[in-house]
Every structure is written in C-alpha cells, then in structure tokens.
Amino acid sequence: MDAKIYNKVRRLVLLVSPWLILLALWQLIISASLVDRTLMPSPTEVVSKFYDLLMNGRLLGDIMMSTQRVFFGVVSGIALAVPVGFLIGWYKDVRTFLDPVINFFRALPPIALIPLVVVYFGIDEPAKIIILFYASFFAGVIVMYEGVAQISPIYIKVAHTLGATDWEIFSRVIVPLTTPHILTAFRVALGVAWATLVASELVAAQKGLGALIQSAGSFFQLDVIYVGIIAIGCVALTMDLVLRSLTKRLIQWQDRVEAQ
C-alpha cells in the first residue's frame, strides 16, 4: 500500500480509536448493568437528548453563551496578562514589586471569590466574565513571565551591534520571541477558563452550559448533565485545536521535538 495513505489511515485510527473505546466502555457498563440504570443514561439516550436540545435551540444558545463568556474572559485576561507578564519578566524591580502579590492572588481558587464578586458586581453578565477574567489572567501571567524571563540576552546584543534602536529591538526581536509564550498563555488560560466556567455560571446564570448542567442537576436529569459535559469538552477541544493550528502557523521556526 502507498506509504502516504497508510500513514493517513494510521493517523485517523489513532485519532478516532480512543473515542470509540470510551463509547464502547460506556455501552458495556450499561449493557452489563454494572451501574443502576437510573444513575447512568446510555450513549443512545444521551445522543437523542443531545438531538432534542439541539433542535429546540436550547443547546446552541447555551453553547453560544458559554463560548462568548469564555472568549471575553480569556481575551481580556490575556490582554492584561501579556503586558504585565512582560514587565515582570523583563524588569527586576517590577518583579520584586509584583511577584508576591501575583502569587498570593494566583493561589486563590476563583470559586472562592464568587460570593464577593456577587456582592460587588451583582449577578449579571459582568460578574461571570470577571471570574473568568481572573482565572485567565493569573494562568496567563505566569506563562508570560516565565517565557520572557527565558529570552536569551544574546539576541538583543546581536540586534544592538547590527544597529537596532530600542523600538526595533522590541518589535523585531522581543515580539517574535514572546509570540510562542503568548499563544501558550492563551491555551493555558482557555483550559482554566472552561474549568472555571461552571463555577462562574453558578452565579445565577439562566443560560450557558454551566447553567444547563446546574439546573439539570436540581431536576435529576442525568442525560442533560451528560450532554452539557460533553458539549463543554467538545467546544474546549475545538478552541484548543484552532489555537494549536494558529500556533503552528505563527511559530513554524520553533524546534519541536517529536519522537517517532
């Protein structure tokens, strides 16, 4: 067989098989009655529920709502994390000044802040985004700061001897060197933000995947909970894939060690 086709098929099998195995295990647990049927819906039940929710528009609305919140939370969090992480990584004084404070707040779980956020920002949209912003900022700022601190001074020295001005050193040396770290910060923040989403939507949300799961929990609609969880996973995975392909395109110069 053509080696190229073989590799493609092989890749496809490797990509798809873990999902099939998970599905099969799930079905097996149901078929073998290993768990009380009232405690676990079957894959087909979840799929049909998924279809129902999709058709009556509820699910799409929830996905849109949550994605939008995650998007705004992460974008605003990273927008602040990039310059702050940069300043901390670059200037020793700023590091001494900000590092302990940042590490103090970073250690606080966002969920613990929800009551305070409700008190100060109410229960509307800003409250949820603020929690996601908080989570994204602290996840991103550490990645940025570590990344910037690792930039080798040799490139800046070389640029100086070639006649670069300070601005040129920033725009043509530091920016390209930090781009990979910005993208990593984005990916880390996205992961954290999705993880925090359910918590943020506990703040009296009417819509959103977290709210969907939350309300289904109160009515013991396990199939809906499964649909919500799977939807979160799918959207988060899609966002990560998009970011990864963007990363690949933007920083194809980087050495990527790949084992055969």
């Binding site: 040799i154 490139y155 020295k157 070389v158 040396v173 060197l177 110069w253 980087q254 050495d255």
Partner: peptide, 11 residues
C-alpha cells in the same frame, strides 16, 4: 560582532 554562541535569530 560575532559572538561565541552566534545568536542566530531562530524566528
């Protein structure tokens, strides 16, 4: 200047 570690821009 040609530095010991070259400082070729990898990007």
């Amino acid at each position: 200047v040609i530095f010991q570690e070259y400082g070729i821009f990898p990007w």
